[in-house]
């Protein structure tokens, strides 16, 4: 009834208006996932105020291989998965895709999180991966409490207190009159000074160092070296506090600090990051020894892992392994003192 040309034209219109959408959408959403062979989870990333990760939680079975495809839809995000997996996809620019194929060996809870500053609420941008046991998929293993934090709680330490000189077994040493450090202690000078000092054995003990403040350490040194000026003792502690940090773990911690901490605490620990004015409490300045020398390493560790109540300090315990957290603590110590360049 039509001429052939009219028929071809109508067919073409049909193909364009119905066939083309069906082909494209069908391929992308039905055929393509089936072709890949392994389970594929598409996750879109946008700033938390626009929805954050979608989806922001999913379950996999231990031993199952899944492919995660992340895309960004508004601004650049970064994706890492922790703790302890060592998965960092790096930055994902809007409209780009990054994928990773993973097999989770053990049941447990993992977190995928944005590690590139993307919004005022950047730190809320996290998602949860439930890894279920193959045998008992309904039993979700409860995470063990962190032993360091448990010990602090048992000890009665207030993790949110701003000064920690008076806590701990050193209560015999009153530190209310802790001297003000006029200039930043120098680990380099401290290395020379320490060689001439009597160093109490406590300094060899990692556990002691982690549970005491540098100010307490200065006081302890003073009891053995009564005639040494306080500034020299501060230099010595600067050296003794930072000497055991492996340079490679500091090198790993540095970019982590830059990505996750610098926005508030400042690139060099000045407490002056570009977000500093917007947090509930002013971010502390690690570069200020008068602050950091009153802190205990294990409390810093706990603050990083648990976050700060009501301060806008987020928790990183679900993202970092304990070792990674200690490396970050070492990095914070290094911010408060002049580095020892002689052995680096």
């Amino acid at each position: 009834m039509f001429k052939r040309s009219e028929f071809i034209a109508r067919l073409t219109v049909g193909v364009i208006l119905i066939g083309l959408p069906a082909l494209i959408l069908g391929y992308q959403f039905i055929v393509r996932p089936q072709l890949s062979g392994i389970r594929t989870i598409d996750i879109s990333a946008s700033s938390p105020e626009n929805g954050g990760f979608q989806p922001n939680s999913f379950s996999v079975t231990a031993g199952e291989t899944v492919m995660l495809r992340f895309t960004s839809i508004d601004v650049t995000h970064g994706v890492a998965i922790g703790p302890g997996l060592g998965v960092d996809l790096g930055q994902i620019d809007p409209g780009h895709i990054k994928e990773v194929t993973l097999t989770f060996d053990e049941a447990g809870t993992y977190t995928f999180y944005c590690n590139t500053w993307c919004s005022v609420n950047h730190w809320r941008m996290r998602g949860v991966i439930d890894v279920r046991d193959r045998v008992n998929p309904n039993v979700i293993p409860t995470a063990l409490p962190d032993p360091v934090i448990a010990a602090l709680v048992a000890e009665g330490v207030d993790i949110d207190a701003s000064v920690h000189n008076r806590s701990s077994a050193m209560s015999s040493m009153p530190m209310d009159d802790a001297p003000v450090l006029v200039e930043r202690p120098s680990a380099e000078r401290g290395a020379t000074i320490a060689a001439a000092l009597t160093i109490p054995t406590e300094f060899q003990d990692d556990a002691w160092r982690q549970s005491h403040t540098p100010q307490q350490a200065i006081a302890l040194l003073l009891t053995q070296n009564p005639n040494t000026p306080q500034t020299d003792l501060a230099d010595a502690v600067a050296y003794l506090w930072t000497r055991s940090a492996a340079s490679e773990s500091l090198a790993r911690a540095a970019p982590y600090y830059a990505q996750n901490c610098a926005a508030c605490h400042g690139e060099t620990g000045g407490g002056d990051g570009f977000m500093a004015a917007q947090t509930a409490e002013t971010p502390v300045a690690f570069a200020d020894p008068n602050y950091l020398f009153t802190m205990r390493g294990d409390v810093l560790y706990a603050k990083i892992r648990r976050g700060g109540m009501g301060t806008d300090m987020p928790n990183f315990g679900t993202l970092l392994t304990p070792d990674e957290t200690w490396a970050l603590v070492d990095y914070l110590w290094s911010l408060s003192v002049e580095p020892n360049n002689s052995n680096r």
Binding site: L20, P94, G95
Partner: peptide
């Protein structure tokens, strides 16, 4: 048609 499809179903990142 491709432009409309891309607009509705493609990435919200214009570039």
């Amino acid at each position: 048609t491709l432009a409309i499809l891309a607009g509705f179903f493609g990435t919200p990142a214009g570039s």
